[in-house]
Design a protein around this nucleic acid. Structure first.
Lengths: 347, 347
DNA sequence: CTGTTAGCGCCTTCAG
DNA sequence: CTGAAGGCGCTAACAG
């Protein structure tokens, strides 16, 4: 097969141990990083031999020995979703800096699939795992963490687990979004979408309620349109609202997809536009006729933080002390979101 | 550490060899699939023991022995791009069916990064690789393939390699897109965007030219705005076009991002809209004021085909005969694209 | 400073 | 039908 450490050893006239030493001792690899005592001329001979033979270190084999594969697994709910892919991009950036590789899988927003994928990945001897849980149940996640797998959650949080997490200030963001609408003079404000199995949705709803409460508004329950995080959910909710005697003047959309569904429905129905304040932002937000405010998340930043976090935990684990679950730092990082007023072009 | 085959063997009162046999012999795993002679009651004892101990097969270790890790690597130019993520989704679906796991990495559209990532992944002992090349040079790709790595290209093609590929009918799609504009009566049609290092861009340009030629139009070279595949490229090109004495009446955008840039520019400049026919389609296409036609690619389908293809090659390789590069079937699969007329809402 | 010796967890002849 | 033994490619003591 491929050329191995043995071939290099033979060609350089040294033992495999020596080859291994120069390979890991002098590498910029974060795993070793320490200077290993190998005579300079021996070292050069080895390096030469390796280059001539086109030798490449086999990480799988090394992993078997060192119990570390320099890979971390990422389990996301969907791949074809800008938001999660920005998160993934951030994670990859950070991992890459430290020489880690990212293994990615999608849970398709199903807890069952998630379980399967998580196990599959764990079987691949990954060093750690970053996950956006698809449900309210985190038993399988917690179980893995308890077995010693470094883990961090990103975006969505499962309460009752002891894992670290990186997410956005969902509550605060929605609070501000709602307040912006209020100070524009709107009072009949609907809240649209939100799968309450996701922490993000719950937190956003909570921010909305608080803003209304603080403003002393008594809320019309028929304006609470919970359920769903997808485009068609927004569409359906909007359709229902339009059929009511007294539709809202403004609305808060739980996320971008729901926001888009609403916009699309308004188009189709040729409805008089209510104003929308939507969580998430996209470069095409200005194209959306009803869009007035957006809450921009730093998805890439979230990914990066999650990446840093998992690396910390992996290192801490290797250094000896447990899974790092017991660290005293704040366990949940919440990144601020930025409220923007959409430039009202071409209404 | 984790429970191993040894523990299971001990608990079941058999040898590790026997455990291994039931594990791989009876598994639905495509690797083995063959019946191995183990007495039914022994088999059950082993299975029992494994379950009790919560045993999980270590794929890394197995890989070392079998030279097969049941993982395939996917190298894409960007992660935060709907199109490529749909492709990835398709790949994952197909791989998953056969028990393979997907390792993903992004080349950031840089050949240098691509090289690094490709090698990194190869060092992880992946069974095969699917790649969307970032450049015109495919030496590193071809080299890997020659070393026996099953590989297939997706979306973009590097000529001069002997690899299989799955892509869209870029030429035909753009041809039709252009023809649609022509039959609407437009004659001054610009072609905007297109990194000629990418086969997709070259093919699309070629389809455009053919349509014009067949219609007997003599083309104004100032309407050829080559370069770039990103939003800002579309923006800049449009800006330039608007400053010319005689801007186009219609335009073909090389892809979605460029299309969006154009739209955005038109908005900002409050320009009288030319009509756009754009390669790629999105659910928000109807929101784009200038959009008249789209060419929808089946990205998920492309991914699936690529997934199937790589699995075939991996199997063929294992079955004995080389890399499968020499198969007689058509090497390049081109999926048809669908031309749609955008419903002209709210202009 | 360097070579020898054991494995990491699993699979696979080769004998029974 | 099953067990013993050797090895995949690499690293980690332990001796020199």
């Amino acid at each position: 097969m491929s050329t191995t450490i043995k071939d290099v050893a033979y060609k350089a006239g040294v033992s495999t141990a020596t080859v291994s030493r120069v390979l890991s001792g002098y590498s910029t690899d974060p795993i070793g990083g320490v200077f290993r005592p190998v005579a300079e001329k021996t070292r050069l001979r080895v390096i030469d031999a390796a280059n001539n033979l086109g030798y490449r270190l086999n990480y799988t084999a090394r992993g078997l020995k060192t119990q570390s594969t320099m890979t971390v697994a990422v389990v996301l709910p969907e791949l074809s979703n800008d938001f999660f892919m920005d998160v993934a991009e951030g994670i990859e950036q950070e991992l890459n800096i430290c020489g880690y590789t990212m293994l990615i899988a999608s849970s398709l927003n199903s807890v069952e699939e998630e379980k399967k994928r998580v196990l599959m990945l764990a079987d691949r001897m990954v060093d750690g795992m970053i996950i956006t849980p698809s449900g309210t149940l985190g038993d399988h996640i917690q179980a893995l963490a308890d077995r010693g797998m470094p883990m961090v959650m990103v975006d969505r949080i499962v309460e009752g687990t002891s894992l670290d997490a990186v997410t956005s200030d969902n509550e605060g963001g929605t609070f501000q979004l709602t307040k912006a609408l209020l100070s524009d003079g709107f009072t009949r404000i609907a809240f649209v979408g939100g799968e309450i199995t996701y922490s993000t949705a719950r937190e956003r709803l909570s921010g909305f309620s608080r803003a209304l409460a603080e403003a002393g508004i008594k809320f019309d329950p028929s304006l609470l349109c919970l359920g769903g995080m997808e485009m068609h959910d927004g569409y359906e909710h909007m359709k229902n609202l339009l059929q009511k005697p007294n539709p809202p003047e403004a609305m808060v959309a739980v996320n971008l997809l729901v926001h888009l569904g609403i916009e699309r429905c308004l188009l189709d129905m040729k409805a008089k536009y209510p104003v929308i304040a939507g969580f998430d932002e996209a470069w095409f937000s200005p194209f959306l006729p009803a869009c007035r405010y957006t809450a921009a998340q730093d998805a890439v930043g979230m990914g990066r933080r999650a990446g840093q976090r998992i690396i910390e935990k992996i290192r801490k684990k290797r250094a000896g002390n447990g899974t790092g679950t017991e660290n005293s730092e704040e366990r949940i990082i919440r990144l601020p979101v930025k409220i923007n007023r959409t430039v009202p072009v071409m209404r």
